[in-house]
Amino acid sequence: MSTNDWQDVWIYAEQRDGSLSSVSHELLGAGRKLADDLGQKLVAVLLGHQMRAAADELVAFGADKVFYLDSPAFGKFADEPYAQALTDLAREHKPSIILGGATAIGRSFIPRVAANLRTGMTADCTALEIHSEKKVLLGTRPAYGGNIMATIICEEKRPQMATVRHKVMKALERDTGRQGEVVERSLPESELTLRAKVVDVVKEIEETCNIAEADIIVTGGRGVGSKEKFQLVRDLAAAIGGAVGASRAVVDAGWVPYSHQVGQTGKTVCPKMYFALGVSGAIQHLAGMQSSDVIIAVNSNPDAEIFKVATYGIVGDISEVVPELIKQFRNGG
């Protein structure tokens, strides 16, 4: 079978608790461009339970077509039924490209789909383009903690699969005038394999905003001084409408739960604005945040590595500078 028999760009529209994740909108933005370059359709695949309205949202954000598969087994994320449904759908319709978010969910089950389909997959891409002559997908991704970039190609196997880093791709404007077809199917639970089952869901993030999704992150490091003083980080985050991040040292010291950790051993983030308060800027930390649009650093050590990647920096004591910043944001200047 020729690779030409595989047509269209698919994105896996991620949802959590019945709400679309922001990465789904970003994937539609990235996928729209690839589909237009290829002259093919952009198709979103939504696996969920009782969330038909979300399918129309996917059209409004750029999909030409949506496969909405409804099953009680899709209510909570489980690798097996998700992978099985996406695999079967891909076998049936033969897409050229399948993209998913490089999230806890996407990075868990989408490689399983790739292996089911015996095809290639590129993890955690930060840039995607179509090769002008070969008409194949080029996925560019960081490796070695972001010190090397690699462009990966999958020439002969189809579909070409990739996960895409959160917050890197731009979503299109929502437009309810956009036209698209929604194909709805319901799958009985009995047709799906479900061995590893979710029995409980616990939200652990201190603030409602999780760092993978946040546009603004305020991170505190060891230089904040103490568990008590870390409240300053939370207060600034609250004043500015951001999520709370933490360096490895702070998590190891038990000031903040691990789910807030930014860096190579924690989460990689790419917000519009990143505050690094009392963060020295170890290479492992930089690997997790250096692609943020704007970086603001406050540190008492003028030679701290963090200043080298900062857009703006203030050299000073956290307990003197941060309260002043909080005051500014609370009072609106």
């Binding site: 806890a104 061995r195 409980d200 869901v201 652990e204 993030i205």
Partner: peptide, 16 residues
């Protein structure tokens, strides 16, 4: 029975 770290907290899963 294990806890799976998610982007917004954790899930508890049971598996054979």
């Amino acid at each position: 029975r294990a806890q799976r770290l998610m982007d917004d907290g954790y899930d508890v899963l049971e598996s054979p």
